[in-house]
């Protein structure tokens, strides 16, 4: 990372000749990264895609976990089945969804036609292409959220729940007043984990759209790939990485300290060490 920091002040380009002079360009790389429309659009595209994706995943994941948590026949089998999407190779997922959304060969359009809906070019229409990526990401990672929530639920004491049932609380009241507060710490942890991972989104989008149409699905990692790996402009890429890491570190630091202060106050309240 220190190397990256140094490089970010130079005009290093790996595709130059070995031993070609490297110039110190000061803050120029930062200036051109911060003013570049490609960079700003990559950042906004990433937010546009991962915020809905993570929110939907969390809601669905909690719902699925609650549903799976009740004792039921086949519960174990269902748990294993719902985990499947998380296990597939991301490149394959991208490829599958490309076929699934396809306007010509698309299975999605076929199923829609069964209920009388018209065919749609999901990956070309600017209004739907980002949602197509969101849906892919939700499909891929909801099982992970559900699994962690399920783990949290499994570790809970059933006593308060039973007590509230005796008190006649309905399902929603039970969820809001008893389950949710207990689940909150784990949800916090899952949120942080997912947010971190979602920023790394690359393989699937690279296969699905290549960042297009226009720059509608050029997420940060695609942008870095383009600059760093295809154009080998390591100086500028390092600057972009530094900007991103500083920004994320700040976010993480805030999240970290909030979590710490919370868990401390919880420890005080519950009187445990």
């Amino acid at each position: 990372m220190l190397v990256a920091l140094y490089l970010s002040f130079t005009d290093t380009n790996l595709s130059n000749a070995v031993g070609a002079p490297v110039h110190n360009v000061g803050l120029n790389n930062y200036a051109s990264v911060l003013t570049s429309t490609d960079f700003s659009s990559a950042v906004s595209t990433t937010c546009w895609i991962i915020i809905p994706a993570v929110v939907i995943e969390m809601v669905l994941g909690v719902g699925i976990a609650l549903w799976l948590n009740r004792p039921r026949r086949y519960a174990r089998g269902m748990r294993a089945v719902t985990l499947l999407p998380y296990l597939l190779v991301p490149v394959v997922i991208g490829n599958f969804f490309r076929m699934f959304y396809s306007a010509q060969f698309g299975q999605l359009n076929y199923y829609l036609s069964l209920v009388g809906l018209p065919a749609h070019a999901w990956l070309t229409d600017p209004a739907t292409v980002r949602w197509a990526v969101v849906a892919l990401e939700v499909w891929h990672t909801t099982p992970f959220v559900a699994l962690l929530c399920l783990a949290g639920l499994a570790g809970m004491s059933p006593d308060p729940l039973e007590a509230s049932m005796v008190d006649g609380a309905n399902a929603w009241q039970r969820f809001v007043h008893i389950v949710l507060p207990d689940l909150l710490p784990i949800l916090g942890a899952v949120l942080v984990l997912r947010a971190m991972d979602a920023i790394q989104l690359f393989d699937e989008v690279y296969v699905l759209t290549g960042g297009g149409p226009g720059r509608l699905t050029s997420v940060i990692n695609l942008y870095l790939y383009q600059f760093g790996f295809r154009q080998f402009q390591i100086g500028q890429t390092s600057a972009a990485v530094t900007v991103i890491v500083v920004f994320l570190a700040a976010l993480a630091l805030i999240a970290f300290s909030i979590m710490r202060s919370r868990s401390r106050s919880r420890e005080r309240n519950s009187g445990l060490g």
């Binding site: 990692n221 790996f229 990485v241 993480a252």
Partner: peptide, 11 residues
């Protein structure tokens, strides 16, 4: 440790 997960893989 947490931060190292945040750095884009390309970097």
């Amino acid at each position: 440790f947490a931060l190292s997960r945040l750095v884009p893989t390309f970097a």
